[in-house]
């Protein structure tokens, strides 16, 4: 579905990614995880075509990403950034239908699609006409998700979608998200810091450090057959204090 082939990317003197090869399987959820600054967001930006690799190619559905097919390919992907990235000058509803309106959808079709999305993401319809500053953080993430899903893309990219939320809302959204992914059977790429969240969502987890892929597999693989001592220390660093009480 998505293939990164021998990708390298440097920012000035920072080597963000070094010869990355990565294939993202269709209809599965792939989670990118790793310490801060390891290059997760950079991979997401490359897939969307927001930045160009120094070396290597990105393929989406066997099409190589070039400036010519950017716009059409992007419309087959939904991208949710870390803080939601909602447009503050537009209401929740306007944020969601912006691209559809640009593409010339008629009002009925837009209205129906928004109703569907509200149900799917459990967003209260009456809050649709509020501006981003007037809704809660969790609701903002739901609007972001609706915006990404508006054109019913095959691919959904989420860069730390639950980063800034409190644990309860986070838990609720995790469940909702998983439900949505399950229902829609989309190809999902998700970035997270949290190994628990990675295990919860990921059919496949990719652990990255300093622009290199360290290991790819399920959470069980990471625990049972780590390929590098870093894998174990990364997992152990995130063990919950509750676990140690249970021991």
């Amino acid at each position: 579905m998505i293939k990164l082939e021998n990708i390298s990317k440097t920012y000035g003197s920072t080597r963000a990614l070094d010869s990355i090869n990565l294939t993202i399987l269709p209809h599965k959820t792939t989670v990118l995880i790793g310490p801060s600054g390891c290059g997760k967001s950079t991979i997401m930006r490359l897939i969307v075509g927001l930045i160009k690799p120094d070396l290597g190619n990105v393929y989406v559905k066997d099409e190589m990403l070039t400036p010519i097919n950017f716009f059409t390919i992007r419309r087959r992907m939904g991208y949710v950034i870390q803080d939601g990235g909602l447009f503050p000058h537009l209401t929740a509803r306007e944020n969601v239908f912006l691209i559809a309106k640009y593409l010339g959808w008629n009002n009925d079709r837009i209205r129906m699609r928004i109703a569907e999305l509200c149900e799917l993401t459990k967003f209260p319809i009456e809050a649709l006409d509020r501006y981003p500053v007037q809704i809660s953080g969790g609701q903002r993430q739901r609007v972001s998700l609706m915006r990404a899903l508006m054109l019913d893309p095959d691919i959904i990219l989420l860069d730390e979608p639950l980063g800034a939320l409190d644990p309860l809302i986070r838990f609720e959204l995790q469940n909702d998200l998983k439900g949505i992914f399950h229902t829609l059977s989309k190809t999902v790429v998700m970035v997270t810091h949290d190994i628990g969240e990675a295990g919860f969502f990921g059919d496949s987890i990719v652990l990255i450090r300093d622009g290199h892929i360290i290991q790819r597999g399920t959470l069980v693989d990471f625990v049972r057959t780590p390929t590098d001592p870093f894998v174990t220390s990364f997992i152990n660093a995130q063990r919950s204090p509750l676990e140690s009480i249970g021991e």
């Binding site: 950017f70 716009f71 950034i81 909602l86 447009f87 503050p88 640009y102």
Partner: peptide, 15 residues
């Protein structure tokens, strides 16, 4: 304009 806003607009596929 914050980078996130700029990138969101680009990622939506708006020229």
């Amino acid at each position: 304009i914050p980078v996130g806003i700029r990138e969101s607009a680009e990622a939506l596929g708006l020229p």
